[in-house]
Design a protein around this nucleic acid. Structure first.
Lengths: 143, 143
DNA sequence: TTGAATTCCTATTGACTTGCTATGAAAAGA
DNA sequence: TCTTTTCATAGCAAGTCAATAGGAATTCAA
């Protein structure tokens, strides 16, 4: 039970775009170089974030990506929903006993709601701000 | 991001043992028949629960399993820890950028703690009680 | 109009995980 | 000694995941 690397790379990319887009777009190649993530892998992740309307793309030369809205309006849940098809809670393949049913109803559904409450509350802004704090000791980040 | 079927089968088995052990042990074969889970699969899960000191086994003829302690002292987290090696939070394979580090510190660790708070709070008793409620309409469960 | 830079799309691969089965040993009561 | 049970380990087929590959489409610029 863990967060996929796809989701993690997605969040890293979004934070990177958030930090480095100064009135312009950010390219896959730049994200790749800064974050040590394969460009080809990013080329698979970023279009999904675009389809979920989290980022907007500009094609062609001098193209790239920008956020579609302020970072405080992008939640962790938005990213997980965009990149991870397997939702927690829809785990009950096993519908063949009373106990399984009861567990599915009273446990997994509650756990899902509980987790979503968390992922709804965390925004990209929170993560970027936290990063700015920790980067205080390790300078030259915002340059 | 989902609960594994192994964990789900583990919980089902524990609830089954909780309900059907009347001063005696419950066998794999009985659980298998009642819950529609392959006996061989259970033979893989139950020993793990025993190693985690959640159940106690009696070998040989007339053997089987019983809980080691009252159901209200067995938590969902106990079961997950016993059966699922991949803990949420230790997802950050990607330790090669400042952003990844920051996310690992401020996000996944917090999410793990948040989830553990939930899994610590749910006991086997809660699940069994809930089951008794829903079984009120569908009688003959405790017979 | 050509070329370079970039996103976009679809397939594919290799490794790992998962869910489950198989085989047989060990233990213990009858 | 025989039956019933747990215990241990190995194996396997299918699926998932992380990542790669190749090329098409789009846009800007010279």
């Amino acid at each position: 039970m863990r967060i996929s690397s796809k989701v993690e790379c997605g969040i890293i990319s979004l934070v990177d775009i958030c930090i480095y887009s100064n009135n312009s777009v950010v390219t896959v190649i730049n994200i790749s170089a800064r974050q040590n993530i394969s460009a080809k892998y990013l080329e698979q992740i970023l279009p999904q974030l675009r389809q979920a309307d989290i980022i907007r793309s500009v094609k062609g030369s001098h193209g790239g990506y920008v956020l579609t809205r302020p970072a405080e309006k992008i939640t962790l849940r938005d990213v997980i929903d965009a990149l991870d098809s397997t939702v927690l809670g829809e785990c009950s393949i096993r519908e063949d006993s009373q106990i399984a049913d009861a567990i599915s109803e009273c446990l997994w559904s509650k756990m899902t709601a509980y987790l979503q409450n968390f992922t709804d509350s965390v925004t990209l802004r929170d993560i970027a701000d936290k990063l700015a704090d920790t980067a205080a000791d390790q300078p030259m980040y915002y340059i």
